[in-house]
């Protein structure tokens, strides 16, 4: 009786969702069977993209978790990171510095160290920029309505884009990115895996582990979690909330900085608006995973990467963004709090 009633109330919706899921599964399985090499190639490409998204989405999710702000400027900080690395490599040959200092290094190791140097520079620049933005634009609005902070974030995002587009800053044109190391591609039974892909995956995992350790083990991490859970109480408990917020912004931006270098290496074309779309998708990924949750952002990003690459490969290249956002809407409908998020129950 109860089950019949439930079916009457919810059955049709469930049927619809399961139908969609079955359709997606059918498309995937059919392609897996007909051309497994291509399929695995797509999955690999999706992984590469997903791990870059993961680095960006962590910044979104941490900031949202603590100040409940969708930091639209995050994608533009990512853009600045990519440009900084471009100048570091193309103008100042920062990637060759290790070879110049220590003679006789093999070219591989030198390029490796140089890349790390570039990544660190990008991370530092992004952190500094994010901290400045936070201090100048967001901090004065801490007690204002949330919409004011959101509009400010949009303003900062515009400003960074259009300021960077001025000729004496960066440029408004497309730039070809020079990779700090040569690309190597291995062919495993037709599936091509590049060293870029490996570097992205390894770097992203290292950063995730470090981040988890910071949040779980350190004092500042504990303070972050406390602030995220209940800011006023955290303040009453003697936590320097402003410091925690600034630290969160800096941490998120550092990850985005690392992500920006990897992204530029993988997709070597830069423009001042390059941060918008990856930023948006990383944000979507954070929402998918459950905004405020670090593992959630990571898993969400991987799903997002796969969804994007697979829908581009098997459904429609031009509609891939539409599909990504449709997935977002569907996930929100089924599980508004995301995969790993805590539902926000309203207290009556």
């Amino acid at each position: 009786m109860q089950r019949v009633a439930t079916w009457r109330r919810k059955g049709l919706g469930r049927l619809f969702l399961w139908g969609l899921a079955a359709l997606a599964a059918y498309v995937l399985i059919r392609n897996l069977v007909t051309n497994p090499t291509l399929f695995f190639q797509q999955v690999i490409n999706g992984l590469q993209l997903g791990f870059v998204y993961a680095l960006i989405s962590l910044g979104y999710t941490m900031v949202y978790g603590i100040v409940r702000l969708i930091n639209f400027a995050h994608g533009d900080i990512f853009m600045v990171g990519a440009f900084v690395s471009f100048y570091a490599i193309s103008r100042f040959q920062l990637n060759q510095v290790p070879a110049q200092i220590v003679g006789g290094l093999s070219s591989n190791i030198s390029a490796f160290l140089g890349t790390i140097l570039v990544i660190i520079l990008s991370m530092l620049t992004c952190s500094a920029l994010a901290t400045t933005v936070e201090r100048v634009a967001y901090k004065p609005l801490r007690n204002a309505p949330r919409i004011a902070a959101l509009i400010t974030a949009i303003g900062v995002s515009f400003f960074l884009e259009y300021f960077a587009a001025l000729e004496f800053v960066f440029t408004s044109d497309y730039i070809n990115y020079q990779r700090p190391f040569p690309v190597q591609v291995w062919d495993i039974r037709g599936v091509k895996i590049s060293n870029i892909m490996l570097i992205i995956v390894v770097t992203a995992i290292i950063f995730l582990v470090i981040l988890q350790q910071i949040v779980r083990r350190t004092k500042i991490g504990k303070a972050m979690r406390a602030t995220s859970y209940d800011t006023p109480t955290a303040r009453l408990m003697g936590i320097n909330v402003d410091g925690v917020i600034t630290f969160t912004f800096a941490l998120g931006a550092a990850l985005a900085g690392a992500g920006s270098v990897l992204y530029a290496i993988a997709y070597p074309q830069l423009i001042v608006f390059m941060g918008i779309l990856p930023g948006l998708k990383a944000f979507v990924a954070a929402v998918l995973g459950g905004i405020g949750s670090i593992p959630g952002a990571f898993i969400g990003s991987l799903i997002m990467g796969q969804a994007e690459v697979l829908s581009a490969g098997y459904l429609s290249t031009t509609l891939r963004d539409a599909i990504a956002f449709t997935i977002l809407i569907l996930v929100l409908l089924v599980r508004p709090q995301g995969l790993f998020g805590e539902p926000e129950g309203e207290k009556v």
Binding site: A137, A148, S157, Y162, E167
Partner: peptide, 16 residues
């Protein structure tokens, strides 16, 4: 090019 540099600055100012 400056148009959209000044516009967001005005935005920030009014918000503040």
């Amino acid at each position: 090019g400056w148009r959209f540099v000044v516009y967001p600055l005005a935005l920030l100012l009014i918000m503040l």
